[in-house]
């Protein structure tokens, strides 16, 4: 790809999703855009970029953005946040919520492994939930990722990454060469296409938001904007779970780290007082 084509693509993705693509990653851009070009009937990547530049075709621009922002994910990624959810967050929420439904949001969840990991935990812990109503939401910017997530179908490679074998046996069935998640767990998650750059106020509040390994792809102003929006979507005792390598430090004062819980943040009390 010519440098000007790379720049066109980088500008497009940043404007649409807030994600900053390293200009040195030309190979990655080419690899990810090649299927988009093929599906849209373009003979080459420069032809695709030219069409984006000249025609400003919305569908094409979103397809390119989605292809370049899709995140790698796996079931129970990094293990620890899910153990904390099972052992600490969920029991506390059940004890403190009364009749109100518990609302959990897996934001920018790509192909759904994160919300389904949470759903499997909730299903396994059902006996301890004392009938608590739990609403679990999964969202992503990518329509294609959400379609795959909703299908609940995963490859052998995908189910082997992070999913303990006993959970595979309990929650999946073999479907030809794929593994199909049980309808019971699939139906626990509600899906919605959400761009984190959009105004999120209409979504209501969530007791726990998982937004792991997402903000690290944004530039700092976008990171601040997204984190401030997520903070506003949390009640006073809500929790935001970020990736291990992600921090709010130096970005926003709206969130405060929870002591001893790497990657877990609470709304800052000052914000509440204000």
């Amino acid at each position: 790809m010519r440098p000007e084509d790379v720049e066109t693509v980088r500008s497009l993705v940043h404007a649409r999703s807030g994600v900053v693509i390293d200009p040195g990653k030309t190979y990655q851009i080419e690899t990810r855009l090649a299927p988009v070009a093929r599906r849209a009937g373009f003979a080459s990547l420069p032809d695709l970029v030219q069409a984006i530049r000249v025609q400003r075709d919305e569908k094409l621009m979103w397809a390119a953005t989605e292809a370049l922002t899709s995140n790698e994910t796996c079931f129970f990624r990094d293990r620890v946040p899910f153990a904390q959810f099972r052992e600490e967050m969920l029991p506390e929420l059940v004890a403190g919520r009364g009749e109100r439904p518990i609302r959990i949001w897996s934001a920018a969840c790509a192909t759904g492994q994160e919300p389904y990991s949470l759903a499997m935990i909730i299903d396994d812990e059902r006996a301890k939930l004392h009938g608590a109503r739990i609403e679990l939401f999964g969202s992503d910017i990518s329509e294609r990722s959400l379609e795959k997530a909703q299908s609940g179908l995963y490859t052998q490679f995908e189910v082997q990454r992070g999913l303990p074998i006993r959970l595979l046996v309990r929650h999946f069935e073999k479907a030809d060469e794929m593994w199909a998640l049980s309808p019971r767990v699939r139906q626990m998650v509600r899906w919605r296409r959400i761009n984190l750059l959009a105004d999120l106020r209409g979504l209501g509040q969530f007791d726990v938001i998982f937004c792991r390994n997402v903000i690290s792809g944004f530039d700092e102003p976008t990171r601040r904007r997204v984190l401030d929006q997520l903070a506003r979507a949390l009640p006073d005792d809500g929790r935001l779970v970020l990736g291990f390598d992600e921090t709010v430090s130096g970005v926003t004062d709206a969130l405060t780290p929870v002591a001893g819980r790497r990657g877990v943040y609470a709304p800052t009390p000052a914000r509440i007082a204000a």
């Binding site: 074998i165 046996v169 069935e173």
Partner: peptide, 18 residues
């Protein structure tokens, strides 16, 4: 890579399955 083999392995005392 079928469920019957996986279940048999777990019943025989396997801890994990690749």
């Amino acid at each position: 890579n079928d469920m019957e083999h996986i279940v048999a392995a777990l019943e025989a005392g396997a801890d994990e399955y690749i």
